[in-house]
Design a protein around this nucleic acid. Structure first.
Length: 233
DNA sequence: GCGACAG
DNA sequence: ATCTTGTCGC
């Protein structure tokens, strides 16, 4: 019996900002940034959550793609009601419940080699963004790919696909602004768990042969919206 | 004290 | 996140 076995539901899913921040401070020590990262990546998962602000309904989606064909090999969704407000820095407490519910619906035979999250990993005020949190809870390698800036300073990367510049906060490089498509706005990549930044960016480029955002994120986004439409009207 | 602030 | 028409470009 370890302390992890005695974590209660309210300790895992706090109701206040102060408690949620305490949970992040307690869990961040478990993040593995030492690498080497997944030895072989065959399947990559994408996760996303869609919201209906009126009904307060949320839909979480997990999709698993073959990294070479970028076609879906598995998909799962879950419907629920938002249990935590959106607070910058505490996104995980809003999105993880529906995501984990969807995760449980995946065939037990499917375990992705890597998970791409919509948001940040260690590029976070307490170095424990959504990607880190999901990584700790699943034990899998995770990375965060965000569409907009949140924390850190950076210079615009060059115009060519593959160009990047460091995201810097407090003197340390916490991620990268990465150009995934030539002439298109950059994305922000940061490590979540069990992978290094170089590998993370390499995978993001492999997932963006045509669009700015990783195919995993796009497919998960579509799946979550479809699931939400299904329960609404 | 005043802005900024992943989704 | 989400609300939305047309419009520019491949």
């Amino acid at each position: 019996m370890t302390s992890a076995d005695t974590i209660t539901d309210s300790e895992r899913w706090p109701a206040t900002v102060a408690e949620a921040e305490a949970v992040q401070d307690r869990l961040r020590g478990q993040v593995d940034l030492s690498g080497p990262g997944p030895a072989r990546v065959v399947t990559v998962a994408g996760v996303d959550v869609a919201y209906d602000t009126d009904s307060d309904m949320v839909a979480g989606a997990v999709v698993v793609l073959d990294v070479h064909t970028l076609s879906a090999v598995a998909e799962a969704t879950a419907i629920g009601r938002a249990q935590f407000p959106y607070v910058p820095g505490l996104l995980a407490f809003r999105e993880l419940p529906p995501l984990l519910d969807a995760w449980k619906q995946l065939p037990t035979t499917i375990t992705p080699d890597l998970v791409v999250c919509d948001g940040y990993g260690v590029a976070h005020p307490r170095r424990f963004g959504l990607a880190c949190h999901l990584g700790i809870l699943t034990g899998l390698p995770t990375i965060g790919v965000a569409k907009t800036a949140f924390i850190g300073d950076y210079d615009p990367p060059g115009p060519q696909r593959g160009s990047w510049s460091p995201l810097v906060d407090g003197g340390e490089a916490i991620g990268r602004a990465l150009r995934t498509r030539t002439g298109v706005k950059e994305v922000f990549v940061s490590v979540g768990h069990r992978i290094d930044l170089d590998s993370a960016c390499r995978h993001v480029l492999a997932l963006t042969p045509r669009y700015r955002l990783p195919e995993t994120t796009r497919v998960a986004d579509h799946a979550s919206r479809r699931a939400l439409r299904g329960v609404l009207g």
